[in-house]
Design a protein around this nucleic acid. Sequence first.
DNA 1: CAAATTGTTGAATTTGAGTTCAGGAAACTC
DNA 2: GAGTTTCCTGAACTCAAATTCAACAATTTG
Lengths: 210, 210
Amino acid sequence: MGRTSGRKAVLIEAAQRAMAEHGTAVRLNQIAEQAGVTSSAVLYHYPNIEELLVDANRAGMERFYDQRMLAISGLTDPVEKLVTTIALGVPRSSDDEEVRLLCSLGGEAARNTIYAVLLTSLYDRQVGMFQAILDSGVVSGDFRLAQDSEVIARNLVALEDAYGYRIMAKHPTLDYATAVDLILDYARMATDHALPAPSRITRLSRPAHT
Amino acid sequence: MGRTSGRKAVLIEAAQRAMAEHGTAVRLNQIAEQAGVTSSAVLYHYPNIEELLVDANRAGMERFYDQRMLAISGLTDPVEKLVTTIALGVPRSSDDEEVRLLCSLGGEAARNTIYAVLLTSLYDRQVGMFQAILDSGVVSGDFRLAQDSEVIARNLVALEDAYGYRIMAKHPTLDYATAVDLILDYARMATDHALPAPSRITRLSRPAHT
DNA sequence: CAAATTGTTGAATTTGAGTTCAGGAAACTC
DNA sequence: GAGTTTCCTGAACTCAAATTCAACAATTTG
């Protein structure tokens, strides 16, 4: 059995889905239902449900981050990397379970330290990711940064976050394409590069949650 | 008696404080406690607590918006207006009850249409506010916009939102001053104006919640 | 295959929150 | 100041969710 003991991994996925659906106020029964077991079974593995939720969210963030790292790992062109990373950081629609999970947490972080720490760490890692891309673009001569790369990176992540929330709220005048354009508009200005719109292929393939 | 019948206004304020403290999963008893009455008393005025929460949040947003409009209403210089508006849109610390309320809602908006509508409306109004300031700065000759004023305005609001969340999560490397600087860095680039840091007076006075 | 371990169920119990309501206090009306 | 309206309380009730636990199934191990 794997390091998450097999069964736990199932519960974590169930918790993710249940929490994406019901938010931080998710019920034990709802998690159990998602996992296809009774609440007692969940309790057997996680006597404290808090822990399960934390594990679920940690795993969700990990995947959100890893997915993008993986997507750009094959790319060599900093321009492509930057555009792809931005395109993958914005939810395509309000159905996106990963971002929905993150949004649920955002509000809770103000009063739950663990979630605050998780989100903080995710933000910092994303900033690092963008910063590396920006810096590599400077080295390659593609980018001429108008500001410190950390400033740009922080603002890029912030924009992604904010537009994620808007898309989750089904903002009528702010769909995926618009959000990406808005972020790219900033990125273009900051990098002095006429970044192309993301290719259509990007993020069409989403791993099934089974 | 006023249009909120006096008593309701008290409950709305209590609900705001209770929700700032406990999030969207706030209990009826917690609201009652904040108001110094029993839960039955709350129910007398609001047989449906959902309504009370919606009213509370609507009022909270209204105040958040109106406060900034009021603060810049006395200013004539577009530069001052822009800087002040930005400075007032970011919470000074994680204690800011108004922003805390907004953050709680952000995550809930994905599954509660009413909150989604409220937040959407707030975002749009804030965008309009920034756009008006930007446009007036163009007319006055202070700003030379690098992008459409709507693009800049949208990104400014998005940055404020996102940094609000970070500050609420007590991000260790992202305090009030840093967040304002980051947003101003973007604004400087977008307006081609060396916007000064906000004067220290700004937002030192906060209305008591009584 | 017997024994032990692991995973799961369903029923019983507890807990806590929402809801209802009869009654009473306070303020207001005439 | 009697009557009316407004506002609020406390107790009783309801209900849903968490928790506990004895029993049982499935799987593993010797």
